[in-house]
Amino acid sequence: MTAIDTDGLTKRFGEDVLAVDELDLTIEEGEVFGFLGPNGAGKSTTINMLLDLTRPTSGSATVLGHDIRAESQQIRERIGVLPEGYDLYDRLTGRKHLEFAIRAKDVDDDPDRLLDRVGLDPEDGDRDVGGYSKGMQQRLALGMALAGDPDLLILDEPSSGLDPTGISEVQEIVRAEADRGTAVFFSSHILGEVEAVCDRIGVLNEGRLVAEGTIDDLQREFAGDAKLDLTLEPTPDGVVGSLPDVEGVSGATVEDGFVRVRCADSRAKARAINHVEAAGATVADIQVEDYSLEDIFTALTSDDVEPPADGDDAAADAAPERAEVEA
């Protein structure tokens, strides 16, 4: 059974704002899916639709096989949610919050186990939440989500308000849950977080899914060739022409004072250098331009930043979609 399946899910606010545009997503059971996008991309709106807090304008979706509109109750009995922009009850203790979550889910769980799980001391559990820091509130809310071992965790920006230790703890919890077979839908605007824990990533920009796949897929599909600029002394005859024969090198050109080698995979760079040295050249200077996933993400989700690869895949694939959204 699929954890989440959306079909043309669309949300309009008024006439002008298209928050989510024909979203088609499938997240398998046990999968950790990173839902990546800048603030305002429509991530929370999507999650709010899955939780029946906001109703779709069109399209449909199921969570754990249940329709999000007709069977929201059954969905919420089996999932754990860390919402975005939430608030807790200042006058109640942490433990009361967890007891409430346990009772509301009608499960048999132990508040102390949950406190421990999210790194809160038992003494913290006895304090009013009004005195909690943002990070502690976030841990407690995560603890409420974990109550009763849900089949699916929906985490909306779970790292907001957390310090680096807290962030890595959240990531550990997500990994542990994934190992237990829990599917995780992890929304974030920070690539690094998603990269660290997710099997698969979907990139959302201005309401549209602009890329989807494993990290390797995305790298392959969007990163394009790395550029290796070599200053050679001297440049032996025929060496530039023979470079494309090296495995992984997709092209080589003579530029103003250097040779530009395009490498389709990163190991090809070393082979290219070995090749020119074998041909009798001395490499006087090396400049490498590599495209990290971060560059890809930036290219996919921004309007004014130049895409990294000169008119390469990333920009070519992403740009027309953005143009449509704007129009």
């Binding site: 939780l51 029946d52 807090l53 929201s72 109750q73 919420r76 009995e77 999932i79 949610v81 919402p83 975005e84 922009g85 939430y86 608030d87 807790l88 009850y89 409430f100 979550a101 509301a104 889910k105 009608d106 809310a141 409420m144 989500a145 929906i154």
Partner: peptide
């Protein structure tokens, strides 16, 4: 009050409808 503070999201993410 819960609607404006956002605690209603926590409440309605749990089974209560």
């Amino acid at each position: 009050g819960e609607r404006q503070s956002g605690s209603i999201k926590v409440l309605l993410s749990l089974p209560p409808n």
